[in-house]
Amino acid sequence: PKDEAKKKVKEAIKRGDEETAKRIAKKYNLDWDDAKREADEER
């Protein structure tokens, strides 16, 4: 599900692992900028 994928993307971003985050986002066709902004807001 997309929500689960987005959570994984945000967790990867918070760990500083943007490569993984981008790969997950691409795989699930998520909006990378959107997920990154959300992760930054939660930090």
Rank of each mutant, 00 (worst) to 15 (best):
P1L: 14
P1N: 15
P1G: 14
K2W: 13
K2A: 13
D3Y: 12
D3I: 11
D3A: 13
D3S: 12
D3M: 11
E4S: 09
E4K: 10
E4N: 09
A5N: 04
A5E: 04
A5Y: 11
K6S: 06
K6P: 02
K6M: 15
K8Q: 13
K8V: 08
V9P: 00
V9R: 00
V9D: 00
V9S: 01
V9M: 13
V9L: 14
V9Y: 05
V9E: 00
K10H: 09
K10E: 05
K10M: 15
E11K: 03
E11A: 11
E11Q: 08
E11V: 04
A12N: 03
I13D: 00
I13H: 01
I13G: 00
I13S: 01
K14Y: 12
K14P: 01
R15S: 07
R15H: 06
G16K: 03
G16S: 02
D17W: 07
D17G: 01
E18S: 06
E18C: 15
E18D: 08
E18H: 12
E19Y: 10
E19P: 05
E19L: 10
E19F: 10
E19T: 10
T20E: 15
A21R: 00
A21W: 00
A21E: 00
A21Q: 00
A21C: 02
K22E: 04
K22P: 00
K22Y: 08
K22G: 01
R23D: 09
R23L: 13
R23H: 08
R23P: 00
A25F: 01
A25V: 03
A25Y: 02
K26Q: 12
K26V: 08
K26W: 08
K26T: 08
K26S: 10
K26P: 01
K27F: 14
K27L: 15
Y28P: 03
Y28W: 09
Y28H: 06
Y28R: 02
N29Y: 04
L30H: 01
D31Q: 05
D31R: 02
D31K: 03
D31Y: 02
D31V: 05
D31A: 05
D34F: 08
A35G: 03
A35E: 08
A35I: 15
K36H: 05
R37E: 06
E38M: 07
E38I: 05
A39D: 05
A39Y: 12
A39T: 06
A39E: 04
D40N: 10
D40C: 12
E41W: 10
E41I: 11
E42M: 07
E42K: 05
E42V: 06
R43L: 15
